[in-house]
């Protein structure tokens, strides 16, 4: 999961335009000079590779054949490929379950931490955030060990209840197992963002509400929640992009899953597997672009929907 957001798509543009108008008296070239070093890196390590990948996606090559230009045939194939579509369905369903869950955990934690100011609360705040500092690869490895019925603690815990440990990476539980890893890894980060937003609220608002007879719950729901809505939207977009591109955790856990996490479990895994294990670089590029398209459309629809709903940002 690469949780770097594009919430900006909409919110920054109008403001930035206003600023730009104000500064238009500057020589035109100066701004470019400041942007140039980054632009160079952006060009070399993003635009060029991307263009090259797109170029590749327009060709076909079989193991026993030469390379031929095939236009958009790879894309047509992708959108009728049951493995790609199956992976896509999984990440969509996964997002629908994961994101509300993560939001709930991080929002609840942030709201509690915003009202309680004991030492325990300060300690908790840091500890909840700790998983963010752990590389996703290592986090997934660790959970893989913990999920192992024989190697991890599960057998012991279940023995207390005279039951045998479930195989959490079996076909019935793998969804929940992955849900848990991602929630564990990212909730703390989201919690901190919401918490920082909560801390930015003028506390005199709470005083006023209390005088009006509002209790903690009402303050949380009526005042805090609307005021941190923009942070929530930011997180949602982060999470949506990251989850649709779900890759690291299932990839790391796949070897421990006895075949349940297939090489085409998520679209990104499918692309990776096609490219690296099966030498289908052209088709893999098309899958990546097809996924990028789905992500783009998904995020756009989401932003459009939240914008209509009473402009929470």
């Amino acid at each position: 999961m690469t949780g770097i957001g594009s919430y900006a798509v909409r919110s920054s543009a109008p403001r930035a335009r206003a600023t730009a108008r104000g500064r238009s008296v500057r020589p035109k070239i100066t701004g470019w000079l400041f942007v140039a070093p980054f632009a160079l890196v952006f060009l070399v390590f993003l635009v060029v590779p991307l263009a090259y990948a797109f170029w590749l996606s327009l060709f076909s090559k079989g193991l026993a054949t030469g390379t031929t230009f095939s236009g958009l045939a790879n894309y047509v194939k992708a959108f009728s490929d049951p493995e790609f579509l199956g992976g896509l369905l999984f990440v969509v369903v996964f997002s629908v379950v994961l994101i509300p869950l993560q939001m709930l955990v991080s929002l609840a934690a942030a709201l509690v931490l915003d009202t309680v100011t004991t030492k325990l609360a300060r300690f908790s705040r840091l500890m909840i955030f700790v998983p963010y500092a752990i590389p996703a690869v290592i986090g997934a490895l660790m959970w893989g060990f913990l999920y192992s019925p024989g190697f991890g603690p599960l057998a012991q815990v279940f023995a207390l209840f005279h039951a045998s440990a479930p195989n959490l990476l079996g076909s019935h539980d793998v969804f929940g197992a992955l849900l848990n890893v991602v929630t564990w890894q990212w909730s703390g980060y989201y919690m901190i963002i919401i918490y920082a937003a909560l801390q930015g609220i003028d506390s005199s608002l709470y005083e006023a509400a209390r005088i009006d007879g509002a209790n903690q719950w009402q303050i949380a729901l009526r005042i805090k929640l609307p005021l941190v809505a923009s942070a929530l939207v930011l997180i949602l977009v982060f999470a949506l992009i990251g989850t649709l591109q779900f890759f690291t955790e299932p990839q790391v856990l796949a070897p421990s899953s006895n075949g349940v996490i297939t090489p085409s479990f998520t679209p990104n895994m499918y692309a990776y597997n096609l490219a690296f294990a099966n030498s289908q670089i052209n088709y893999a590029s098309a899958i990546s672009f097809a996924l990028g398209l789905v992500v783009f459309v998904g995020v756009y629809i989401f932003l459009f929907a939240t914008r209509k709903k009473g402009r929470i940002v």
Binding site: S6, Y52, N268, G292
Partner: peptide, 21 residues
């Protein structure tokens, strides 16, 4: 404006698409 649009769109690029090129 074009640069900004590109910048913001770039976060949606799946990393796997970039690794091979």
């Amino acid at each position: 404006r074009l640069s900004l649009a590109l910048l913001l769109g770039s976060v949606m690029v799946p990393l796997t698409a970039l690794v091979i090129p």
